[in-house]
């Protein structure tokens, strides 16, 4: 953990491979796609898989593989930025609350967290969308806001037991203030917790983005997104079920990959859990 290498389990490697596959596809889609997804070609609609279209085409004649790649880009961007919001705001708040345990500041941070938890991310999204209209940015905000209390809790929960350890006392005897101690001693020691939580929130973000764009509150056309593809396919589920199955499988594979990776990272990074695994 400190000096040794991270050792992943086989399931962890599968997760890492799936994650890398989708992230790679999303990155590739920035510079190259097999077909332009902005072009609609009704004559080529609902084609079965062929060398030109390895996964066939959708009801507008767009290449499914290209759509899935572009959709991965949207999903990953939204979920990643939402995790960034949660990390950027939640972690400092959580560390602050832990450093001032039991004070009014701690109380305010924790009650604020509870308040956000009272609004499921979908409800936040509904509120934001009702006022500002649906967009990918609003989806990021809605998911990101919900990530703040999650990371604040993880950071606070991870920091509290460390605050009682003697090395924190030694740092205080060495004249260090709470902020400096939080930065030098606490943050590095909760990094593994944060990495694991970030993986989990990333996968939840993928699911949330899919749900939001499925009900029309997320990315708007022509931006490709997996949830949107599912919503479009639903009307044709009787005739073209494969259009509904492929984006769903993509979501499952991506989320599964992230979860497997997160679990494996937790086992590899958390010595307490590793010991329990004996």
């Amino acid at each position: 953990m400190m000096s040794g290498r991270i050792r992943l389990s086989p399931a962890g490697w599968i997760g890492a491979a799936l994650t890398a596959l989708f992230v790679g596809a999303a990155l590739l889609s920035l510079v190259w796609l097999p077909h332009d997804v902005g072009v609609l070609d009704i004559s080529a609609r609902n084609l079965p898989p062929s060398p030109a279209h390895p996964l066939g085409t959708d009801h507008y004649g767009r290449d499914m593989l290209s759509m899935l790649m572009a959709g991965a880009r949207t999903s990953i961007a939204v979920a990643l930025l939402a995790v960034g919001i949660g990390l950027g705001l939640g972690v400092p708040l959580g560390l602050l609350a832990a450093a001032r345990r039991g004070s009014w500041l701690d109380e305010v941070v924790m009650r604020g967290n509870d308040l956000i938890f009272a609004f499921p991310s979908l409800v936040i999204a509904i509120l934001i969308t009702a006022v500002f209209g649906p967009s990918a940015v609003n989806a990021i905000l809605a998911i990101g806001i919900f990530n703040i209390p999650v990371f604040a809790r993880v950071a606070r929960g991870g920091a509290l037991p460390i605050w009682t350890l003697d090395y924190i006392m030694a740092a205080r005897v060495a004249g260090k203030g709470r902020a400096l101690i939080s930065f030098q001693h606490l943050l590095p020691n909760i990094t593994s917790l944060l990495i694991v939580q970030a993986t989990i929130q990333f996968s939840l973000g993928i699911l949330a983005e899919a749900a939001l764009s499925y009900v029309g509150l997320g990315a708007q056309p022509p931006t490709a997104s997996w949830g949107r593809m599912l919503a479009d396919a639903q009307t044709m589920i009787y005739t073209e079920p494969q259009l509904a199955i492929m984006p769903g499988l993509a979501i499952v594979a991506m989320v599964l990959g992230l979860n497997l990776l997160g679990d494996a990272l937790r086992d590899a990074l958390d010595p307490r859990l590793r010991r329990m695994g004996v």
């Binding site: 350890l165 003697d166 090395y167 006392m169 030694a170 005897v173 030098q184 001693h185 590095p188 020691n189």
Partner: peptide
């Protein structure tokens, strides 16, 4: 000061 716990006295990182 020197504390009691030989395990908790140092930042493991």
């Amino acid at each position: 000061v020197v504390f009691q716990d030989p395990y908790g006295s140092f930042d493991p990182r």
